[in-house]
């Protein structure tokens, strides 16, 4: 379990990293390395070059940017969890990150890394989609912003170009009547979930008047369930109806810990579990 040979480049700034990535199709970005390094050691991936961006300064900022909370790509999960702005403006992110692996991994793993890697079982891509976040990438032609829902194309496939690097994520600031609710079911704490749900809720009092549902660990990318959300708004929680709706809307893919049937069941149950939190 030793990685095949690769070259290593410690990028001094973003442009430096972009230049190398543009030139070498087989080069990959190393940020926290929590997904990449095991893949290298298992020889599932053998890139020509690792472009280490972890020493680039200023890429881990967390700040208010207009109507957005901006989180720099290199902010580690631990760093985000301890941030005052996050606590005040997007506390759900802290609850979500508590479910991401374990402290040792959160100390190294980065926000941008998780967003860019696009693991369909990971929480942050689904959060980005559910909150209508903007993913900011930087490339040879400068910076551009990609809507999260346009960012994830398929299994580990994103809208990012060869010469581009994720430099940050902009989450729209939550409005007074808005809540982001989160729940997942996993075999062990910190594991990838068997199914997970992030709900973006608009409410008046405890009454939900608008809702979007985004699942993770159900298919090949974050799965939005707009029809099912609408059905819920119309008829409330009805297990069979919602289950049928989800079944037609999402292509559930089973894995080692849960069959597609199990995932469909959990996805349905999660609507109840998540919305129960409104009352709590």
């Amino acid at each position: 379990m030793k990685a095949a040979d690769f070259s290593y480049h410690e990028a001094t700034n973003i442009q430096d990293a972009i230049n190398i990535k543009a030139k070498d199709e087989e080069a990959v970005i190393l940020a926290g390395g929590q997904s990449l390094l095991p893949a290298l050691n298992m020889r599932l991936s053998s890139p020509s070059c690792l472009i280490d961006i972890s020493k680039i300064s200023g890429l881990d900022d967390i700040k208010i940017d207009g109507d957005y909370l901006f989180i720099g790509a290199l902010a580690t999960h631990s760093h985000v969890m301890k941030n005052e702005l996050v606590l005040k403006r997007m506390p759900c992110l802290i609850d979500i990150l508590k479910m991401v692996a374990h402290p040792a991994i959160r100390n190294k793993g980065t926000h941008g890394g998780s967003i860019a890697y696009g693991d369909p079982a990971a929480e942050l891509p689904a959060l980005a989609v559910a909150t209508n976040a903007e993913i900011i990438v930087s490339g040879q032609n400068g910076d551009r912003s990609i809507h999260a829902k346009d960012f994830y194309l398929g299994l580990f496939e994103t809208a990012i170009n060869q010469d581009e690097i994720v430099i940050g994520i902009k989450y729209p600031l939550l409005k007074q009547e808005q809540a982001i609710l989160f729940e997942e079911v996993c075999r062990r704490h910190g594991d990838y979930a068997m199914a997970g749900l992030i709900a973006n809720v608009n409410k008046i009092g405890n009454k939900v008047n608008d809702l979007s549902l985004v699942y993770f660990a159900t298919g090949d990318k974050p799965d939005s369930a707009d029809k099912t959300a609408k059905l819920y708004l119309e008829n409330g929680y009805d297990y069979s109806n919602l289950k049928n709706s989800l079944n037609s809307e999402i292509d559930f893919a089973g894995d080692l810990n849960s069959s597609s049937e199990m995932k469909l069941h959990l996805a349905t149950i999660l609507i109840k579990k998540v919305l129960n939190k409104l009352e709590a």
Partner: peptide, 16 residues
């Protein structure tokens, strides 16, 4: 064998 890694072969950890 389908789960020959510590991520996929589940042993109880502190939380369990």
């Amino acid at each position: 064998m389908q789960n020959a890694t510590m991520a996929d072969y589940l042993v109880p950890m502190a939380y369990e």
